[in-house]
């Protein structure tokens, strides 16, 4: 659907995007992951035709975004990081305006907007001025704007930033719904947000693509499966020795003291091998009290660590 070929964007001496190549397939929900400042927004701005790349090419449905901008841009709905809203208009006026510039036929506009109101649930604020809306509603109006004209591809730059947890859940559900009949690209610096909704992720770091794969594949190698945190009352060394000796445990690392008199440890075990029972039994029979045991999430940082260590191993 969208091919990004060797795209580079240079700002002065800094390469914001460095020779990026990847493909967005029709019908998939693609996550675009990276830390803040990694080049996510720049890439998205290039893909949508807002800025031009220093070199490289973006093809939307086979059309070059620079050579056939009108046709190519018609296929894309874009929700930038800051929703592009005119504060002095009402929601309805604004969306009619967007219909006009996105070339939705006059007689279809009303019905089209009714569908969008329904989908993003903004029917109750349609007569209100945009500047008086809450942040969550503004975000939804921004999303409505991206849906106008029913584009094949919807690109969203950090759609959940600054929203409260309930709104985040709603937006995520919306993204999942959109994924049924659109190609969706969504950028984020939060791993579990992407893991919730995306089929595939592209990870960018310092302007370079470091990985593109399904999230399961990417997280598989990390910690070899199960990783948890245990908090135990007792001295560091003996407890660590005890945990290490539990059958199935591959790693036990102290993580410092978070609660008085206790010690936190990171415990890893081989996948498919549940060590919780033997671990707890061993601790109790050793005379140590267990205060907490919880699974640890894989973070974006872990993936970065994994990827960078892999590439350095490859280099050796």
């Amino acid at each position: 659907m969208i091919e990004i070929k060797n795209v580079t964007k240079r700002y002065g001496t800094k390469l914001a995007v460095d020779d990026v190549t990847f493909t967005i397939n029709k019908g998939e929900v693609l996550g675009f992951l990276g830390r803040n400042g990694a080049g996510k927004s720049t890439t998205m701005n290039i893909v949508t035709g807002y800025i031009s790349a220093t070199s490289g090419q973006v093809l939307v449905d086979g059309m070059d975004i620079l050579e056939e901008p009108r046709q190519a841009k018609r296929c894309i709905g874009y929700l930038p990081e800051q929703p592009p809203l005119y504060m002095d208009m009402t929601v309805e006026e604004y969306l009619y305006f967007v219909c006009d510039i996105k070339e939705v036929r006059k007689r279809n506009q009303k019905a089209h907007l009714e569908d969008i109101y329904e989908l993003v649930k903004i029917a109750d604020v349609r007569k209100r001025l945009i500047k008086n809306l809450s942040k969550g509603y503004k975000q939804r109006v921004g999303l409505a704007q991206a849906l106008v004209g029913n584009p094949d591809v919807i690109i969203m730059d950090e759609p959940t930033v600054g929203l409260d947890p309930r709104q985040i859940i709603e937006i995520r559900r919306l993204i999942r719904d959109l994924g049924h009949n659109h190609t969706v690209v969504l950028s984020s610096h939060i791993l579990h947000e992407v893991s919730d909704v995306c089929d595939r992720v592209v990870i960018i770091n310092n302007g370079k693509i470091v990985a593109q794969d399904s999230l399961e594949h990417l997280t598989q190698g990390i910690g070899e499966g199960v990783r948890m945190m245990v908090r135990v009352v007792g001295p560091e060394k003996p407890v660590q020795r005890l945990i290490r000796n539990v059958p199935g445990v591959s790693l036990a690392e102290p993580m410092g003291m978070k609660e008085p008199d206790s010690m936190d440890f990171m415990v890893e075990s081989a996948p498919g091998n549940d060590v919780r029972r033997p671990l707890v039994n061993a601790l109790v029979s050793g005379g140590y009290s267990l205060l907490m045991l919880r699974p640890m999430d894989v973070t974006l940082e872990d993936i970065f660590l994994q990827l960078t260590s892999e590439s350095s191993e490859g280099g050796n």
């Binding site: 949508t48 807002y50 009108r70 841009k73 874009y78 930038p80 800051q82 592009p84 005119y86 510039i101």
Partner: peptide
Amino acid sequence: RTKTDQLLLTSPVS
């Protein structure tokens, strides 16, 4: 300033 140019420049208008 309000980034609404992102809407205009990514829409099919010249």
